[in-house]
Simulated scan of single mutants.
Amino acid sequence: MSENGLNTVRIPVGWWIAKDPTPPKPFVGGSLKTLDNAFTWAQKYGMKVIVDLHAAPASQNGRVHSATRDGYREWGDSYIPDTVATIDFLAERYSESPSLIAIQLMNEPYGVDLGSLKKYYQAGYEAVRKHTSSAYVIMSNPLDRDSKVLLQFARAFDRVVIDVHYYNLFWDKFSNMNVKQNIDYIRYNRASELSSLTSSNGPLIFV
């Protein structure tokens, strides 16, 4: 990968990684050792790692990749302490690695209360900063909200990135587009959206 010009990998993890090697059922152990190996390989080949909390306790979006078993999304205020504890665990474990470039506090929240999300993002940011002042902290924009909803909030923090997580599929308007139309949509529509999100004193934007 590094020989082909790729310099960073984003690695998704579930909250149960902090319980390894004996996480609660139905989860299985081994994810922590795998992540340790990834950091070892990244350092060997001069690459950076983004650790992404892809599955928060009780699911932040009700989708299978957030570890829900039945499609329910239950994440909210009562799960913030456990979610922050996972971030604290990851930040403490990898803060000294030269390969750590960022920790993503959550992937693709959907249908969650915005106030709860901001409360968690602030606590998660503080958990990361206990261990490292250099790693970026990535805050995922809620998929069901305007892409500008976190801009003002994020300006209060240092070295923060907003993940807008654009998709050019899953919605009806993309169903009948050919390849050129899809590329043109990115070139004209997405470029305009990204321009409106970017400012000299605002957070970085991760697509």
Rank of each mutant, 00 (worst) to 15 (best):
A91R: 06
L32R: 15
S2R: 15
D88R: 05
I50E: 08
M106D: 13
E74T: 11
P12N: 09
L100H: 05
E3T: 11
Y121G: 01
L105I: 09
I183K: 07
F153K: 01
R63M: 13
Y125M: 07
L53R: 02
P12T: 06
K19N: 14
S196F: 00
S99H: 06
R187T: 12
W75K: 05
L105Y: 11
L117I: 08
D158G: 03
V112G: 07
K44N: 04
W15P: 00
P203Q: 09
R129I: 08
G76S: 14
D70K: 02
Q181L: 04
V112Y: 07
K130M: 09
P81A: 01
G29E: 10
V207R: 03
A135K: 03
H54M: 10
K173W: 08
W41Y: 09
P26R: 13
L35F: 12
D113N: 13
K118L: 05
P142E: 04
P109A: 02
V49N: 08
D52P: 07
S99Q: 11
E193S: 12
G46N: 08
G29S: 07
A38S: 15
I162T: 00
V149D: 10
N107Q: 12
D146G: 13
H131Y: 15
L117E: 01
F27N: 11
S199V: 00
K118S: 06
P203S: 15
H165G: 06
Y45D: 12
I101K: 14
T34E: 15
P23F: 08
T132R: 06
Y166F: 12
A135E: 12
T198P: 01
Y125N: 01
K19V: 03
L150C: 05
M139C: 08
T83R: 10
V137Q: 01
A42G: 05
S134L: 04
P98C: 05
L197H: 02
K25W: 10
I162L: 13
D77V: 05
H131S: 05
G202E: 04
I87G: 06
M177R: 01
F170E: 11
D20C: 08
E108W: 13
A156F: 01
Q104G: 09
S31W: 11
S200C: 03
G76W: 02
R159Y: 02
A67Q: 04
L53T: 07
Q104M: 11
G62P: 06
L100A: 05
A102T: 13
G14Y: 10
D158L: 00
V51L: 08
S99I: 12
L53C: 06
L151I: 05
Y45C: 01
I87H: 03
N37M: 15
P24L: 00
F170N: 08
L100G: 03
Y110R: 14
V128G: 04
G71H: 08
I205P: 00
I11L: 14
K25S: 15
L114W: 09
S192F: 03
H165D: 14
T8I: 15
N178T: 04
V84F: 06
K180I: 14
I183P: 00
S31N: 15
P24I: 04
L53Y: 03
D77R: 05
P203G: 11
Y121E: 15
L151Y: 01
L169N: 10
Q43T: 15
F174C: 01
Y167A: 00
W41S: 04
A85P: 10
W171A: 10
Y136S: 09
D146L: 04
E3L: 10
L204F: 11
D163E: 13
